[in-house]
Design a binder for these strands. Structure first.
Lengths: 250, 250
DNA sequence: TCAAAAGTGTTTCGGATACACCCATGA
DNA sequence: TCATGGGTGTATCCGAAACACTTTTGA
């Protein structure tokens, strides 16, 4: 058995609550695509989403924050708990557990997992695998491979939650770099909502919230007219989010 | 120690997953008030919301359904998981646990609890206490006493969730008796939203959804003009809920 | 007969949608 | 110079909100 894994199993059932895990759907935005950070298990294993376990004296949120920090290198991540999963049968990966030699251990027991989603600035993330995995990379949310357990269900539910709560969630502020153009912001909304929006109406409405500051700079190098760069005015943004959010998508 | 309690503790850690519970915020509507079903612990204990534990081969939903059935006598309850709780410190009730003589047992360990809310027809519920409690009764959601653990937080979050998802949740269909008047339906919406709505606009909009069937009967005995009775057309209602719900409250 | 609640309209207004025109840029 | 994308402005429409009048009922 893998050394790291052995160490982890030995301390696992003392340090962590049994039967309970947290899993994170980490969203990023890059090249007009909404991305999700996935991990691939060692030993030619399957893909999964980043997860972790809850220490005896640790809150659920803290456990998720710790996991996020470990996988992305980022602090101060926007994070929301959205649903808990854990059908008694998650039989998708018994073979893998056997191959890893962990069947029978507390790791192979039934788990209730608390789902979180996170919004991160793609450009600031340096993906890091954990002790159980050797690859950590971004995947288009619409091209997710088969994942272990019920992780496909978890990703699907996370995306639905994001779509439904789009008005109240600071997607622009969290998923984009600090400077961005209006078409980029629109791209983000169109990708999440999965439908086209009118360019002119989008700009009008977005500016009407009064949370954007237009900079002198423009994004040059593009093939056409250079669009302005914008930045969120932090204070105005925060108060706008408190007062009902940025109403889009119905 | 109480006999039922003793039996439960003995089998508890074999039959159920440790550290995991479910809690239900059961909403009803009566006399123009949104109500929540509360339990009171034996031995002069505190109030709490109904909860239960998850069997080893039972899904979270099934566990909640089982609990609901036991407390209300109802099958086919509308039920939604809305959030999971479980700060490491839920120190509110150590004294009570000591008085019951269960400190040290698995019941006194740290729990992660999965929150559900339910919508039930008040008139069809016969509240039943469980093995740990001797009172089971309705309380106005705005006059909840101090509850054990973080149950006040759970109720608050359930109400917020209900308000935010009002458009997509069949509150009218689930919280009212099968026959009801338009003013009663409006009362329900006003109570949940906690604000007044225009009587005429409400009726117009509600009827425009095309899910209500007006009966020949009227509600007589009131002090004034007798209002018509309505009934939901099940098929039309279901398809309307799928197609975006009944849009109210922003 | 009268106060209060219920049924049925019409008017008004604002935000969302649709659409037209000009400008800048690299190919 | 031209195809394409970006910036700005205007007309329209529909649903929400505001509001008026009549009818019914028990007291």
């Amino acid at each position: 058995m893998d050394k790291d894994l052995k160490i982890f199993l030995a301390k696992g059932d003392k340090e962590f609550l049994p039967h309970i895990s947290i899993d994170c759907v980490i969203f990023g935005f890059h090249e007009r695509q909404l991305k999700v950070l996935l991990l691939k298990w060692k030993e030619g294993g399957s893909w999964c989403i980043p997860g972790g376990f809850v220490k005896h004296q640790e809150s659920l949120d803290a456990s998720a924050i710790r996991t996020l920090k470990e996988r992305t290198g980022l602090n101060n991540i926007y994070l929301k708990q959205f649903y808990s999963f854990g059908e008694p049968k998650r039989d998708n990966s018994k073979a893998l557990l056997r191959r890893l030699g962990v069947n029978g251990s507390w790791l192979a027991k039934r788990f209730i997992t608390v789902g979180y989603y996170a919004l991160v600035d793609y450009s600031r993330v340096s993906p890091k695998p954990d002790w159980l995995t050797d690859i950590c990379e971004w995947h288009d949310v619409h091209k997710i491979p088969k994942l272990i357990y019920d992780h496909n269900v978890i990703v699907k539910k996370a995306l639905e939650t994001l779509q439904l709560s789009l008005n109240d969630v600071p997607v622009g502020h969290k998923l984009l770099p600090s400077k961005f153009t209006m078409p980029e912001l629109q791209d983000l909304y169109e990708t999440i909502l999965d439908r086209k929006l009118d360019r002119r109406n989008f700009q009008k409405k977005m500016l009407s919230f009064g949370v954007l500051e237009r900079l002198e700079e423009r994004r040059t190098g593009g093939a056409h007219k250079s669009p302005f760069l914008y930045r969120f005015d932090r204070k105005k943004y925060d108060s706008a989010m408190k007062g009902g959010g940025l109403k889009f998508g119905v």
